[in-house]
């Protein structure tokens, strides 16, 4: 499994290239040429990437000792899941409650979820950030931000 990550990536990229190549067949000829050229290169690249992992591992077994190859894909799986889930929820909350309410919630809750416990710094940072966004985006640049149910 030394080169497992690269092999999986190569298989996924090949599948995407093949899928898009076939799907492009439904397009008129002139609109199809360029996407098909790209996917052909992409498929060849994916095959080369896959074969390279096989040939390097076969020719130079010591390459398998490269510590980088043994690094896990996620540095900290729990914090990754927390952050991505928070980002997704944040985007959903923006459309429901409005930008400023959602932002207030994400700054406080995500920081706490990631283990930050300096409440004074957290409070001050949250207020300063929201004030800065309000001044720059609403007062100076007059940009519309999602309003939602609250603001």
């Amino acid at each position: 499994m030394t080169y497992g990550k690269d092999r999986i990536a190569a298989v996924i990229l090949f599948a995407v290239a093949a899928g898009v190549f076939l799907y492009a067949g439904t397009l008129p000829f002139k609109s199809m040429i360029f996407p098909r050229m790209i996917t052909a290169v992409m498929a060849i690249g994916a095959v080369m990437m896959f074969l390279r992992t096989v040939s390097i591992a076969g020719r130079t077994p010591q390459a398998a000792d490269d510590p980088k190859l043994h690094q896990p894909f996620f540095r900290n799986p729990l914090n990754f899941v927390i952050t991505v889930a928070a980002m997704l929820l944040y985007l959903f909350t923006i459309s429901q409650l409005g930008y400023f309410t959602a932002t207030l919630l994400v700054i406080v809750l995500l920081s706490l979820a990631l283990g930050f416990r300096d409440y004074r710094t957290l409070g001050l940072t949250t207020i300063a950030f929201l004030a800065l966004v309000y001044v720059i985006f609403i007062l100076i640049f007059d940009r519309p931000l999602p309003q939602g149910l609250i603001y």
């Binding site: 985007l91 990631l114 985006f137």
Partner: peptide
């Protein structure tokens, strides 16, 4: 500044920036 605090701040700043291009939630996703 504790770097963990930058995580939600960057998220919020990117959201406001990307939304303001087309006023589109789709762009944010």
């Amino acid at each position: 500044l504790p770097r963990v605090l930058l995580v939600p701040l960057i998220t919020a700043l990117t959201a406001v920036g990307v939304y303001s291009i087309n006023n589109s939630m789709f762009d944010l996703y």
